[in-house]
Design a protein around this nucleic acid. Structure first.
Length: 268
DNA sequence: CGAGTCCTGTGT
DNA sequence: ACACAGGACTCG
């Protein structure tokens, strides 16, 4: 479920509740949720004060401090991960962070793909990711786009190009900018590139404003059902009429991911 | 590049 | 029974 807007929503929901608190204990009910040795991770997290909480692409970064030493807890929710504040542990609970003041963070993750990594600092792999899509100016975006020579959908999905876009928002941004997902990025001129840059920013901003996009059972950090949802134009709309022109939305596979587009609005 | 892997749940 | 799902990593 989570792409940049969903992660941003979760981080905003958690931040005011956890910053300034101390991790009294950590528990992994699914050992592989911890990257490396779970016991080492637990020992590393105990007694850490949460100094700040931020988002890095689709990652959640807890900035920690203990005895004057800083470190980070990096969490990736992958497909089905989520945090519940003060929730009851259940069959899909993979990790629990017990904070001071009688507070707990339950990590709920049906598919067990989510990962917790405790490290001295932001790992190199994260530093090598591309810029934040909501922060990159067009003057930087355009040459970056032109420097690639691959299908637009594959480029947008690549976290080394921009960090945080996932399958839904790639399809939606391409639709909004009327660019066919198979267009080679090296052949996108300044006009279309500007539309794409703006579409990316708009669709992410819209989604964040609405608390993300719910496909299946999205439950926010407070444990209540998500009520708003971004309306998608193409994602998951295969066969339905395009909301702009009425042509049926098509589905294909690009970079081994399902890709939705309107063949009439998005010409090659 | 694509294919396989990690996983469980849902829909056909 | 089988395809498919918001993601990312490893391998050939």
């Amino acid at each position: 479920m989570p792409e940049l807007p969903e992660v941003e929503t979760i981080v905003r929901g958690l931040r005011r509740r956890v910053v300034g608190r101390t991790i009294d204990n950590a528990e992994f009910r699914w050992a592989r949720t911890a990257k490396g040795d779970p016991d080492v991770t637990v020992a590393g997290l105990r007694g850490q004060r949460i100094e700040a909480l931020r988002r890095w692409g689709k990652y959640i970064v807890f900035d920690l401090a203990r005895d004057g030493e800083s470190s980070v807890l990096v969490v990736h929710l992958r497909m089905t991960g989520n945090f519940l504040i003060n929730g009851e542990p259940g069959p899909w609970t993979r990790a629990i962070l017990t904070l001071d003041g009688g507070m707990s963070l339950i990590f709920h993750d049906i598919r067990k793909f989510g990962r917790f990594e405790w490290a001295p600092d932001i790992p190199p792999r994260l530093r090598e990711l591309g810029p934040e899509p909501l922060e990159i100016p067009f003057e930087e975006f355009y040459p970056r786009l032109k420097a690639r020579s691959a299908q637009a959908k594959a480029v947008l999905l690549n976290q080394e190009f921009l960090r945080g876009l996932g399958n839904i928002y790639c399809d939606e941004a391409l639709f909004r900018s009327r660019i066919h997902p198979k267009t080679n990025t090296a052949r996108i001129g300044p006009t279309r590139a500007a539309r794409l840059h703006q579409a990316i920013q708009e669709v992410l901003a819209d989604a964040i404003e609405q608390g993300g996009t719910t496909v299946m059972n999205y439950v926010n950090s407070e444990g209540t059902q998500g009520y708003f949802q971004l309306k998608t134009f193409v994602y998951g709309k295969t066969g339905e009429p395009c909301k702009v022109c009425g042509a049926p939305i098509r589905k294909t596979i690009i970079a081994s991911r399902s890709t939705h587009y309107c063949a009439s609005c998005q010409r090659r």
